[in-house]
Design a protein around this nucleic acid. Sequence first.
DNA 1: AAGCGTTGTTTCCTGCAAGATATAACGAAA
DNA 2: TTTCGTTATATCTTGCAGGAAACAACGCTT
Lengths: 110, 110
Amino acid sequence: MYHIKSRIWIEGEEGVFLGEGRIKVLKAIMVEGSLSKAAKSLGMSYKKAWNLVDSINKNASNPVIITNTGGSGGGGTEITAYGVKMITAFENINKNCWDFLDQQLKELQL
Amino acid sequence: MYHIKSRIWIEGEEGVFLGEGRIKVLKAIMVEGSLSKAAKSLGMSYKKAWNLVDSINKNASNPVIITNTGGSGGGGTEITAYGVKMITAFENINKNCWDFLDQQLKELQL
DNA sequence: AAGCGTTGTTTCCTGCAAGATATAACGAAA
DNA sequence: TTTCGTTATATCTTGCAGGAAACAACGCTT
């Protein structure tokens, strides 16, 4: 009958640190090896992707992303071990939240 | 350090049934007794408030809102007992969700 | 039957988020 | 030192969500 949905996000000092969109970009970076390729693979403008990554860097307690500008291939960006840990943590919490909410709605038996 | 936030909403057959914005409108209607006054009290355009109420009606399993058009005072709208029940149910789930997420984040001890 | 303040609906307008575009800086490799 | 594909950033443009405004319909009260 009814179903329940949610969006969660984690904030740091200056704004949003992680959310679903940022997670998507991070995962695409892990696959593609660069921000520009990641943006392209997601059908997202480079600017938007860059803004997301910028906000991640501004709000992270520890480095999540290492960017290398210039060099043979032009550079690229990679995700730190801390970043990988945060991705999986976020996805776990998100999954748990969904399960929790489904349970909550079921208990109401509307 | 980090803190976690969320938005939840309940969907029906055709779209969103309840969310934070719709709850706000419903509660304002309960106080004000009419949709137009409720919109004004929230600093929201009548059209936006009407759209929210319309989507509630389209997706509710049972009547939530009774509108009376015309009459001495011009009419007005009131919330059914079912509507009141849904409001408190939503707010409970929302509160529980916040607590749950805070707990989840704390368990990570970042 | 006239007046009133609602609900309900349409049309027009505008601000702004987001895309598109352009360009500088970078540094390894050849 | 030239080339290359990045990162980083500024500027311009545009689509559209949302507000503003206008108006019809309604029905109780007087």
